[in-house]
Amino acid sequence: MIETKIRRVGNSAVMTLTTEMLALLDAKEGDSLFVVRGDNGDLRIMARDQSLAEILEAAEIVMDENREALQKLA
């Protein structure tokens, strides 16, 4: 487990990613990351995956096109 701090920058709260964290994510400054909330409330940080990004974009389009039907099902 790696510990990091949350600090204020302007009106935002930011978390610093150490060099070790970036290496584990195979990421570098300027890269995009995904933050996903798990069923138990935990957050998972993942390096941006182009194929996952494309799948999520396609899902967003389908949900927008079927918003009324999805709301009735909810």
Rank of each mutant, 00 (worst) to 15 (best):
E3I: 04
T4P: 05
I6L: 14
I6F: 12
I6M: 09
R7F: 06
R7M: 13
R8H: 04
R8Q: 14
V9C: 11
N11G: 13
N11S: 13
A13P: 12
A13Y: 06
V14G: 10
V14K: 06
V14M: 12
M15F: 05
M15L: 09
M15H: 03
M15S: 01
L17K: 00
L17E: 00
L17N: 00
T18W: 02
T19F: 00
T19L: 02
E20T: 04
E20M: 03
E20Y: 00
M21W: 01
M21I: 03
M21D: 01
L22V: 02
L22R: 05
A23P: 01
A23F: 01
L24C: 02
L24E: 03
D26A: 03
A27W: 02
A27I: 02
A27G: 00
A27F: 00
K28N: 08
E29T: 11
E29K: 14
E29W: 07
G30H: 09
D31S: 00
D31Q: 00
D31C: 00
F34A: 06
F34P: 04
F34W: 03
F34Y: 01
F34S: 03
F34E: 09
V35K: 07
V36L: 15
V36T: 13
V36R: 14
R37P: 00
R37E: 14
G38Y: 01
G38I: 00
G38S: 05
D39K: 09
D39Y: 09
D39R: 07
D42C: 05
I45M: 03
I45F: 02
M46H: 09
M46Y: 11
A47C: 10
R48M: 15
R48E: 14
D49F: 15
D49T: 04
Q50A: 12
Q50R: 13
A53F: 01
A53Q: 14
A53M: 13
E54M: 13
I55C: 08
I55H: 06
I55S: 12
I55E: 12
E57F: 10
A58M: 08
A58G: 04
A58R: 09
A59Y: 11
A59H: 06
E60A: 10
I61K: 10
I61S: 11
I61G: 05
I61N: 07
M63S: 11
M63W: 08
E65Y: 10
E65G: 09
N66I: 04
N66P: 08
R67Y: 15
R67A: 14
R67F: 15
R67M: 15
R67I: 15
E68Q: 11
E68W: 04
E68R: 12
E68K: 11
A69Y: 04
A69L: 08
Q71S: 14
K72N: 13
L73K: 05
A74N: 10
A74P: 02
